[in-house]
Structure formats: structure tokens, C-alpha cells
């Protein structure tokens, strides 16, 4: 598979502080890539290096197989976490200006703007000043400005902050549509549910180092504990517990259920899930049986607090 972006051994130091320590990763073309990490981990520095806002002390970045060059800015769309527009400038003029800075001709920029303004149903805003718009409205403009020049790579830092649920969904759909059309997307966020929902790949950066990288399913496989959630209605609880504890590690748990059942966490260890099932069916009526898959949130917290 082709990679749209390759970061190789990037090091960045600010005075005595090392912001990035030999970080490498590869973003496959057409993927949605989640860049995770606690505050101050070095995500923003990394993103700024990809955008050529700051230069790395050592290491290299390749876009589409070629070493990153200043003309590549037209292939990258970047929405920073700290968002802003010129408050006193009119929406239309501002979009045209920013698009032209990205290398679009005035005519192309106008065409693209028309398309997006119609799509998001904001045609009436052209002559308004940003300061007359609400925060959510300004965010929409911000999104349009980011994707206007049809970048190959879209970098979104906390893209949903500031949107109400309706608009967040709208933007999410736009992002997914862009991805389907072939745009690769880097997603930097703290909202784990959107990572869970949208990302194919993730990388986790903590204290200037990359700790995890890979396909989301692979990472999850690596972090699975072979634990099953079990719900059972049993006439002989004592017998059941005795049978279970002979083979497995068992704990109490809680989940939503309509039945008045016993709720257990069972760690399989070496054994097969069928072994567990046969014990259960022998001792009662199974109402719930589910492998506990580690959430991105769990993985995040586990990795960050271990180090």
C-alpha cells in the first residue's frame, strides 16, 4: 500500500526541552489516521512540522513518496486547534484570500467556494463579516477554508470542538465523504468515541515518544485480555462459581440487562471460549456473552499511566 505521509526519525528540541524524540510513523494513502496523546505530548509540534511551520532538528518527512518541499503546502489542508479568522474581513474576501495563499487561482477559488457554500447552505454569508457570525458559523467557514484547495492530506486538530451535535455530524459526514473520494486524513483529538468511530489507524504519542502505532483492529488485538462478560440465570450459584473458579479468573461486573441475572467478568487465560460456554450452559441459562474489547480510551489510559 502506498503511504501518503512518512515521518522518519523526527527530533525537535526547544532549548532544553525535547518536544519530539525520534518519532517515526507511516500514514497509508486513503486512511483516516488518529493521532492521539495527552496534552503536551508533542502532537502540535509534529503537526507543525508536517505543515512546515517549524523545521525538525533532524529527521525527514515524505509526502507521497517525495521529500517535503515548500510547494507541498497546496496539497495539505490544516485546521489548527486554535482557530481563527480575520474578524473584520468579509467572509467571501477572506475565503478568496486564504485560498489564493494556498496557490489557487482566483477563478478556481470562486468556483470551489460556490460549490462548498451551496453544499453547506451558507450562500447568504458571503458579504458578512466574521464578527457578525456565531462561533459555530465561523467554524463552518474555517472548515471550508481548510478543504477548499482539495488537499491530498487533511490535518484536523480537534475538528469537532465548537460545533453543536447537528453541525458536528454534518462536518463528520463531509470528512467521511472526502475520505471516500481519496483524501487521507490525520485526526488529532481527545474525543475517543470519534476515533473509535472514524479512524482506521492510530498512533499514540506520549512525552515526546511514539508508543503505539498501527491499524486500529491490530492495536486492539494486541491489547485484548481475553475477558468475557457473562450474564447467567442459575439455580445453583454456588456450583457454578465453584466450576468457574477452578479454571478461570472470575470477577463481578456490571452491564445493562433486562434480566435478573448474575453478572460476571471471566478471564479465559489459556482456555477456549467454548470451555467457558459449556460450564455455563451446564449450570443455567446464559443471557449475555460478550468478549470485552478494549476501547481506545482504555488503551490510551493504560498506556499513558504505565509510562
Amino acid at each position: 500500500m502506498n503511504s501518503i505521509l512518512e515521518v522518519k526519525n523526527v527530533v525537535k528540541q526547544f532549548g532544553d526541552y525535547k518536544a519530539l524524540n525520534d518519532v517515526s510513523f507511516t500514514i497509508p494513502e486513503g486512511s483516516i489516521y488518529g493521532l492521539l496523546g495527552p496534552n503536551g505530548a508533542g502532537k502540535t509540534t509534529l503537526i507543525r512540522i508536517i505543515n512546515q511551520i517549524t523545521m525538525p532538528d533532524s529527521g525527514e518527512v515524505f509526502l507521497d513518496g517525495k521529500k517535503l518541499s515548500p510547494s507541498d503546502i497546496q496539497h495539505i489542508g490544516y485546521m489548527p486547534e486554535e482557530r481563527g479568522l480575520y474578524k473584520t474581513m468579509k467572509v467571501g474576501e477572506q475565503c478568496l484570500y486564504l485560498a489564493q495563499l494556498k496557490g489557487l487561482s482566483k477563478e478556481d477559488a470562486k468556483k470551489q467556494l460556490k460549490y462548498w457554500f451551496e453544499k453547506l447552505e451558507i450562500e447568504g454569508w458571503w458579504n458578512k463579516k466574521i464578527q457578525e457570525l456565531s462561533k459555530g458559523m465561523a467554524q463552518k467557514i474555517q472548515f471550508v477554508v481548510t478543504v477548499l484547495h482539495k488537499p491530498k492530506l487533511l490535518i484536523l486538530d480537534e475538528p469537532f470542538s465548537g460545533f453543536d451535535p447537528v453541525n458536528a455530524n454534518l462536518i463528520k459526514d463531509e470528512i467521511i465523504e472526502l475520505n471516500k473520494q481519496g483524501t487521507s486524513i490525520i485526526f488529532s483529538t481527545h474525543r475517543m468515541e470519534s476515533v473509535e468511530e472514524m479512524c482506521d489507524y492510530i498512533a499514540l504519542i506520549h512525552k515526546s515518544n511514539k508508543l503505539i502505532e498501527g491499524k486500529l483492529v491490530d492495536v486492539k488485538k494486541e491489547y485484548r485480555t481475553n475477558t468475557f462478560e457473562v450474564g447467567i440465570i442459575s439455580p445453583n450459584v454456588e456450583g457454578l462459581m465453584y466450576d468457574l473458579t477452578q479454571k478461570f479468573k472470575v470477577g463481578q461486573t456490571n452491564f445493562k440487562s433486562l434480566n435478573d441475572d448474575i453478572k460476571l467478568d471471566v478471564q479465559l487465560g489459556e482456555h477456549h471460549s467454548n470451555d467457558l460456554l459449556s460450564i455455563l450452559t451446564k449450570n443455567g441459562q446464559v443471557t449475555h456473552f460478550l468478549e470485552k474489547i478494549p476501547s481506545v480510551n482504555d488503551i490510551f489510559i493504560q498506556t499513558v499511566s504505565n509510562k
Partner: peptide
């Protein structure tokens, strides 16, 4: 103004 508006990061991802 550009700094307080926070537009600066968008601009300098396009220009030097």
C-alpha cells in the same frame, strides 16, 4: 491582531 485572532497558524501553514 493576527495573534489574538488565532488566524496566524492558518496563514503560516500557507506562507513563510
Amino acid at each position: 491582531e493576527e495573534k489574538t485572532n488565532r488566524i496566524i497558524e492558518i496563514i503560516i501553514s500557507s506562507v513563510k
